[in-house]
Amino acid sequence: MSSANVLMPQQATILDITEETPDIKTLRVVGKEGMPFDFMPGQCAMLSVPPVGEAIFSITSSPTCRECLEFSIKDVGNVSGALHGLQPGQQIGIRGPYGNGFPIEKMKGKDILFIGGGIGLAPLRSLIGYCFAHREEFGHIDIVYGARSPADLIRKSEVRESWAAEPDTSVYLTVDAEFPDWNGHVGFVPNYVSELAFKPEGRIALTCGPPIMIKFVLQALDKLQFSPEQVITTLEMRMKCGVGKCGRCNLGSVYVCKDGPVFSLDELNALPSEY
């Protein structure tokens, strides 16, 4: 009964590849018979490129998209590098979904503040898509998204045009420094969040990005009087199994691959700070 082997990937095919930034590509992946599996925003999947191996990536498409899974992948390691080298039509391995996903029930009826940086938009985008598809279940949506440079912003046109056009939605883009072709906001994401002075009342803030950005976003939100339960983030760890057994991604007795990667700040505060 090998189909029950949790480590066994299934076959999938790359539909197409979009170059987002110099080091980020978005892969659209489909299983043998359509969607490889159902999932919730914030969940991840293991992609394999033999003989290089497997690595875990967050799913960036919304579960409401039923054609394929999307992964925005930054070229930082062996597997991501190998994925970057592939062509559309190439078959790969996939298994999942892994992780807990975002706490959608808890978010319902609230205003939602998304704070993303660089590749950190990947998991948030899945949830943003979900929120737009279930627009009536959520209040006002604010999206703050930044990157080092305009070239490092992913999904630029989608963020600027489609998202900004959604009802009751505000989009704030920023880049770290001045660039000739950029006439938007300039400054680090955490500072922008402080400037925008979001009110904590009835609001849930979700943030994802490089560790240093998250650190300062959390400080900014704290200053804005967000309580730890209102702040949600996702963690990244090295993972091999995705099912809480291989022993890498634990924080105390909690496994990020299984019990995470989404944690509210109060949950995180109760765990050893080993991430």
């Binding site: 480590l7 394999s48 033999p50 003989p51 290089v52 191996g53 497997e54 091999k240 199994c241 057994k245 291989c246 022993g247 890498r248």
Partner: peptide
């Protein structure tokens, strides 16, 4: 009981083991 997962082989064929 910690384990690792690795591939052994080349782009043509090979195995995955833990």
């Amino acid at each position: 009981y910690c384990f690792d997962v690795e591939d052994f082989g080349h782009e043509g064929e090979g195995q995955r083991f833990r």
